[in-house]
């Protein structure tokens, strides 16, 4: 029995905005299950009193002077965009129902 249901696999894929086929979903269910069981090795350790490490160096809030700087030219920025018009990037319809 897998720890991860097909429904969960599809939910996670949706959260990640990752289009997957039914076949891929089945494969991912097995692989995720394998990796999650492997990760459960960490439960051997009592970490109640341990603080998490998000960053290895002791640095916080690196600030700089608030001075405006020139941005990149619009033509350059749009150079790699798959679809653009009049200095804007164009995407398919955002609202539901086309």
């Amino acid at each position: 029995m897998s720890r991860i249901s097909m429904e969960q696999v599809k939910h996670v894929a949706h959260l990640a905005r990752l289009g997957i086929t039914e076949q891929e979903a089945e494969k991912m269910q097995k692989e995720l299950d394998l990796m999650i069981s492997f990760a459960e090795l960490l439960n051997e350790l009592d970490t109640d009193e341990v603080k998490p490490t998000f960053h290895v160096l002791d640095m916080q809030n690196v600030m700089r002077e608030d001075i405006s700087q020139k941005g990149l030219p619009v033509e350059e920025v749009l150079k790699n965009a798959p679809d653009s018009k009049d200095g804007h990037i164009r995407v398919p319809s955002i609202m539901e129902g086309k």
Binding site: L42, L45, T47, V50, P52, T53, F54
Partner: peptide
Amino acid sequence: KAQKVRTL
């Protein structure tokens, strides 16, 4: 949990 193990 993994972040805590990272500390260890």
